[in-house]
Nucleic acid binder design. Structure first.
Length: 416
DNA sequence: CGTCCACAGGAATGACGGGCGG
DNA sequence: CCGCCCGTCATTCCTGTGGACG
């Protein structure tokens, strides 16, 4: 009845709840632990490969493969941190630069970022890519260093933009007189090689390090390392820990996933006022993570992508469980009309569908219907209630959730 | 066994807002 | 301020294709 009392309770609860977490930062994926269990071999290989730079020699280019959450970035950062310490000791002229290519997004921004790291100022945009590259090269040459460039998530950039960037970078040493460049490419996609020019491949692939997925027991060890730091004593049940490891192992051995599960499970337990994290909390964490992922993804879509999703949703209501492109486009066009928008072309919608497939909101696969053509069968990959929930709250699209497309009612008993 | 559907998906091109050098 | 280039989104035009049908 008294708002002060309510708050007192909240704060008090917060204080008493120190019983689950000691330091949850430890469970974030950008946290770099002191030890990286089960990656000793990779650390050694990478260390051996970069060591020559301490003697003023260029080290081989390195290609690192492995799925997400297998420790590629962590190992690289770990090794380079140690190398940096040695660098100071030996007073070697070495510099590093770490770029996440997926976040950078384009060649331009990668070169701009590289330039900035060696003190060459470049505008956000406005120059040609070639110009930025030339400035970078000139600046690099005059600074007389060994430059180690780490290109993280390089597969994202290559798939989107091709391998021109890599081609330029692998050849840059030929035109440098006073400086040297070594590359470390990190890829999540093991098939990346197929996309590369053979010249680039032979240069970048001088050394290759593969990161196998972790198995359940390895994941358990990794989690265990951090549990002491992250959780209070006795706040985590053995079963919960095992379940986190098992769930993550089932999903291509992703340590990041395991850590997320553990952290969210802890938060769930905290909120439920439990004093120990149990399996049930992990299960709930699993669905909560998935739920958040989908809701976020749906909210961030562009208007037309949302309309495409809604179209598939409506087709589902009309008992079309695997819609084809043409049907979707028909419904989509009607929804556009309903909003007074001019629909995009079918070609464009086709790539929107592919994008939605890539982020996992739709599932699309090409099939042939023989005499009746070749198309894609598409179905929703997320729960219908979620779609309804998210879009009903959208002031523009809310109305369309309940809308009955005419093209469906006319021929409701059309396809299977 | 060839045909031909209903698209897939590549390439070229354009419109547009942002942002620079000169 | 102009002219240029950037990245993004979209259109237009196009060639390619698996397999049921005849």
């Amino acid at each position: 009845m008294n708002s002060n009392n309510i708050l007192d309770e909240v704060f008090e609860k917060f204080f008493n709840n120190v019983k689950i977490f000691k330091d949850r930062e430890v469970l974030r994926h950008d946290y770099l632990p002191d030890r990286l269990p089960h990656r000793e071999e990779q650390i050694k290989r990478l260390g051996e490969t970069v060591a020559p730079v301490l003697k003023d020699a260029k080290c081989s280019n390195i290609f690192i493969y492995g799925k997400t959450g297998t420790g590629k970035t962590a190992v690289t950062q770990y090794v380079l941190n140690h190398l940096e310490a040695k660098t100071k000791e030996f007073n070697a002229p070495i510099r590093f630069h770490f770029i996440n290519c997926r976040l950078a997004g384009t060649e331009y921004r990668v070169f701009a970022s590289l330039s900035q790291s060696i003190g060459v100022r470049v505008p956000f945009t406005g120059l040609s890519v070639g110009e930025v590259f030339d400035r970078f090269r000139a600046g690099l040459d005059s600074s007389k260093i060994i430059f180690i460039i780490v290109l993280d998530e390089i597969d994202a950039l290559i798939k989107a933009r091709g391998d021109i960037l890599l081609y330029e970078l692998t050849r840059i040493n030929e035109t440098l007189r006073n400086s040297k460049v070594s590359l470390i490419g990190i890829s999540n996609d093991l098939r990346l090689k197929e996309f590369l020019d053979p010249r680039v491949l032979s240069s970048l692939g001088e050394e290759e390090i593969v990161f196998r997925p972790y198995d359940a027991s390895e994941l358990k060890n990794i989690l265990f390392e951090r549990v002491h730091l992250a959780f209070c004593d006795e706040a985590l049940s053995e079963g919960a820990l095992g379940l986190c490891a098992a769930l993550a192992a089932a999903e291509h051995g992703d340590a990041r996933r395991a850590l997320d599960l553990l952290r969210v499970a802890g938060e769930v337990a905290e909120r439920k006022d439990a004093n120990i994290v149990v399996e049930e909390h992990v299960r709930e964490a699993e669905s909560r993570i998935e739920h958040n992922r989908v809701v976020e993804a749906l909210r961030n879509l562009t208007l037309h992508s949302k309309l495409v999703i809604l179209s598939v949703f409506h087709l589902g209501r009309a008992n079309v469980h695997r819609a084809i492109t043409g049907e979707i486009y028909e419904v989509y066009s009607e929804l556009c009309e309903e909003l007074g928008l001019t629909p995009l072309t079918q070609r464009r919608v086709s790539t929107l569908i592919n994008e939605l497939d890539a982020v996992g909101l739709l599932n699309a696969r090409v099939i042939s219907m023989g005499r009746y053509g070749r198309t894609k069968k598409i179905r929703l990959e997320v729960m219908r209630t979620l779609i309804r929930g998210v879009f009903t709250n959208d002031n523009r699209l809310g109305r369309l959730v309940k809308y009955e497309p005419k093209c469906l009612s006319k021929q409701a008993s059309g396809r299977r």
